[in-house]
Amino acid sequence: MELLRGALTVAWKDVRLELRSREVIASALVFGLIVVVVFNFGLNRAPGSLAPVAPGLLWVAYAFIGVLAMNRAFTRELEHGGLDGLLLAPISRDAVFLGKMLGSLAFMLVIEAILLPVFAVMLDLPTLSPTLGLVILLATVGFATVGTFFAGIAVQTRSREILLPVLFFPVVVPVIIAAVEASALALQGGPMTAVWTRWAPLLLVFDALYLVICPWIFGFVFEG
């Protein structure tokens, strides 16, 4: 309970900060739009050629947006010694981690929700299905957990822009694979049994794995 209260305090702080500055969501949204435009130029050679790659495209965009958003969310803490303040706050490291993770999760979900109709319109995809929504939710939990953990490390280094993706992507590969496969099924609109029996449970398992491991090591990493 103590943990949850601390985490919510940290997350709420982030949300309020975001409501005032809007720098994470706004920059990530613009970035997402640019990604869609570039994809269109890069891939749209023949009519109908986009459909087979659409799920991959969706997740490439979301993954990069996620990295951007989480990097911003942590970089903000660097100003005025915010990170030290967070770590000195009378709450456990777990609560700090969980709070930052919940904040990032909320930002990413908002961005993804706004971008879904954009994808639907600009790439002509049936993205407004509840199955896809659930897949996105599950995958984003994994993204936010791993991303928050590595953002905490990367943001303190001299090359945070490159270090976060380099650390983040190898670890979330299972989530990306499962998310792409499940989204492909959801976007095709065919039978969804494989989503429920295979990919959604897989995403759940990896979410659980990350949620157990990451806060633990986070405590380790911020010991000294």
């Binding site: 280094t157 090359s159 990493v221």
Partner: peptide, 25 residues
């Protein structure tokens, strides 16, 4: 990629102490 990241972390960590701990992880 993982172990290139390992070497990068050491290179770019703010203090050698942190570089050692993080890269170990």
């Amino acid at each position: 990629f993982i172990y290139v990241a390992y070497l990068m972390i050491r290179q770019y960590a703010p203090t050698p102490q942190q570089g050692r701990t993080w890269s170990a992880v």
